[in-house]
Design a protein around this nucleic acid. Sequence first.
DNA 1: TCACTATAGTGAGTGTCCTCACTATGGGGC
DNA 2: GCCCCATAGTGAGGACACTCACTATAGTGA
Lengths: 188, 188
Amino acid sequence: MGHPDIRSHAPLTHGDLKVDGSGYLYDAAMRRAVVEDAGEGSVEVFEALAALRLAAKRIHDAMERFAEGHGLSESRLRVLTRLCHRPSRQLPLGALAEGMDVTPRTMTDIIDVLERDGLVKRVPDPADRRSVQAVITEAGLERINAMRRDATTKQAAIAQGFTADQLVDLRHLCLLLVRNLSGDAEGS
Amino acid sequence: MGHPDIRSHAPLTHGDLKVDGSGYLYDAAMRRAVVEDAGEGSVEVFEALAALRLAAKRIHDAMERFAEGHGLSESRLRVLTRLCHRPSRQLPLGALAEGMDVTPRTMTDIIDVLERDGLVKRVPDPADRRSVQAVITEAGLERINAMRRDATTKQAAIAQGFTADQLVDLRHLCLLLVRNLSGDAEGS
DNA sequence: TCACTATAGTGAGTGTCCTCACTATGGGGC
DNA sequence: GCCCCATAGTGAGGACACTCACTATAGTGA
């Protein structure tokens, strides 16, 4: 039952970080590329955005690699985790899709695989017969519990060297971006 | 001939941002989900990471939508932009792949489409006959130039309300994360 | 000159996520 | 009862990026 094989995928050009005069990190290769991309736009904006995207990609890759080590993908891991934290150990597909910011159709696929692997079961909801509940199985719970300690360790590694304030800042700045991207696109 | 159709894809649960007691943004739905996910780990870490990923996704979606409005995808737009900023108007596929943090194989696909649309031409490199140069065509240049003004406007909208310091902070924090994720995975 | 190894690009196949279209059920009005 | 529309999930098909395996060229070194 082949897993997709994410494996290391050596960091390409980006990744050799340097510190500028004021103590802030930057990536030389990225800065070069950004200058080429930006043209008339603000270079700072581009560079921040590029850094953000690089970080997101690396986080995604790391999560994927971690999950893959336990026979899951990142999405499937997130579903399992969510179900496991539920007192009832179950959730309708639609709710799962919303919570993970994917389309309902995608959740169908994710649950398909999870069910095929015996980690989740589809159960019709007697209260609303359109709805299908995803219920985590014993095997699913075992899988998650086996990953627990491991996960906590990795998390700590990721946030190594971050102060609480920095984490709040990071969240705030990212959500500022989200807000700018939500309302407008052509609005005021 | 058939673009993929990214269109709006209404923001799901996430996106209704609030401000906490100290003036920092947070997303109620996200915080709820994070608490469920986190378990023993640090909630702050999870929430910052979730915010970062949400921002990355929104940026990606916005860029994709923008590019699609001009008959391109985000990747193809980036390739064209890069080529266009090159004095020689060309670059080998491998260099493009590196600069964009994708595998060489993926760049082959991207160039395939660009070439099919007449925006780029493959030209063998006489100096190194293994190498293939991607050269932007007249049509490609026109396409890019038509997007220019539009792009600058969007950029400004994204960074609306950001100070220069905040942009540097954002970059720095993201690259800190990148650095944490680069060396280890299991190292100290 | 003949390996021997590294590099550039591509063919073949996979996984994930998306959109569109469709079925089935729920919940009104009338 | 019936009609109308919204909602939950899925089938079909596509875009994108990845892996592995392969070819062709380059650059050594015996």
